[in-house]
Design a binder for these strands. Sequence first.
DNA 1: AAAGATAATATGCATGCACATATTAACGTG
DNA 2: CACGTTAATATGTGCATGCATATTATCTTT
Lengths: 233, 233
Amino acid sequence: MALTDTNSWTGIREELLRRIHDRVWEPGAQIPHEADLAEEFGCARTTVNRALRDLAESGLVIRKRRAGTRVALNPPQRATLTIPIIREEVEALGKTYRHSLLERAYQPVPPMLHGVFHASLGDDVLYLKTLHFADDRPYAFEERYINLDTVPEARQRKFEVSSANEWLVHNAPYSRGDLSFSALNANEDTARILDCTPGTALFAMERITWTGDAPITHVKLIFAPGYRMRSRI
Amino acid sequence: MALTDTNSWTGIREELLRRIHDRVWEPGAQIPHEADLAEEFGCARTTVNRALRDLAESGLVIRKRRAGTRVALNPPQRATLTIPIIREEVEALGKTYRHSLLERAYQPVPPMLHGVFHASLGDDVLYLKTLHFADDRPYAFEERYINLDTVPEARQRKFEVSSANEWLVHNAPYSRGDLSFSALNANEDTARILDCTPGTALFAMERITWTGDAPITHVKLIFAPGYRMRSRI
DNA sequence: AAAGATAATATGCATGCACATATTAACGTG
DNA sequence: CACGTTAATATGTGCATGCATATTATCTTT
C-alpha cells in the first residue's frame, strides 16, 4: 500500500521510513532484501539500493552483506553540525567582525600536546592567542598551536590581517579531526579578555586536525557568555 | 597522473580530493565535467558521479545543474556527532547506569515553549524531571516536556523503569529536530541535584524533536561537571 | 565431533544507456 | 534595446545487467 506514488529513490526512502516509523518493521527486525523490494515497488534494484544506502547512512538501518538489512535497534541520533569560520559566523549575525592578535610566539610543544604532536618533540610550534570581536565586543578567545613541520609556510604569516582560523582552512585542508565541547568557568585571565566576571560559565570547543597522519593544529576556542551552538537533525 | 590506480568510486574520490588539497583545482575554480573526468579515468560517468556526489555531500565541492561543479570557496567544516542514549553512553564508560524520576506532572504548556507547541495551547503536557546516574554519581539532569497530543501513549507510562529518553527513541521516532549546546552556571537547585557547588560551569544540551509537523518533546539535559562531548570529523 | 574447505546468498559496485530537470547562453521579435 | 522564447548543456536519476565481496550455511575430511 505504498501511498508514495513516485518510484524515485527518495519516494522509496519515504515509504521505507514510514514502515519503520509505523512499526510495520519492528526495531531489530530484518527487512525484505533488495530484490524483493524492487519487485514490490516495481523499480530496479539499484533504486532500492540507493534508498537503503541513504537510510543506512543516517543510521536507521544496519546493512551487512549476506546477512541482509535490519532496522536499527537503537537508532543512533546523529546530528551534523557545521562549524563555520568565525568571521562568517559573526557576519551571519549581521555584525562586523574583526580580530586582534594578542600573542605570537615560538614555543616547545606543550606537555598537553605531547601525545598528539609526538613526532616533533624537540621542535618548536607556533603559538597564537587571538581575540575575535563581533561589533567590537569580544566574541571568542582562541588559543592555537600550529605544527611547523606540517605547515612551514605559517612561519611567514603574521596572522594580523587574516586570522589563522581562516588561513589554515584555505591553505592547510585537513583530512581528519577530533572535536570536543565543554563548559568551563572563566578564570581571571579569560574573564578579563572576554569582558565578563570570573566564574562565568563559558562554552569551549577544542579541535585537533590532521592531514593524513601529520597533525596540523590544535585550537581551543572559548566563547563569550551566552554562546549557543546550534544544529539540526 | 592519477596515482590511485583503482577505478573504484572511492579511488576516484581520493584522486579528486588530492587535486583539491594540492590546489590543482583552486578554491572557487570550476572542475571538468563528469563526462570528461570519466574519460580521463577510463570509467563510466556514473562512477565519477558517485565520487562527486560524495564530495558534494561533505561540502567540499558545490554542484549545480548546467553550471557545473566547482571547488567550495569556504569548505564548511562539518562534523557529525552521535548523541547516544544516556544509558548507553554511561555503560560505554564501564559504569553502571540507573536513573531516578524526581517529578512527573501534567502542566500547561510553559511560556518558553509556546512558539513550539503552538497547536496545543489549552492542553496539558507531561513534565518529567529525571536524574541519570553513573556508578551512583549524578551524571546528567534532565527536564522534559512531552506533547501528549502527539504521543498520547506516554500518559500510561510511569518512566520509572525505562527512562523517557529511551522509551521515546524506541516508540516515537522523530523525523526532525533542533539541537543546541551551551554552558551555564549551576544555580542552587541544579548544584544540589548534581552534587556540585553553585556557580560551577555545566554543559547543557537542548533538543526539540518533531515527527512531521507535530512536536514530540523538548528536553534540556544538564551534565555533571567535567562533561565533554566528543566528535570526529 | 571438531575443523577446514566450499557453496550459496545478500549487499556493494561498475557499466552503458536513456531521459529528466535546472540553468545558462543564444536568439529573435516587438 | 529590452524582454521573453528557445536551445544547449551539465548534473540528477532510473534501469538492466554483470561481477565482486563479505558472510553464513553446508558439506567434507580427519
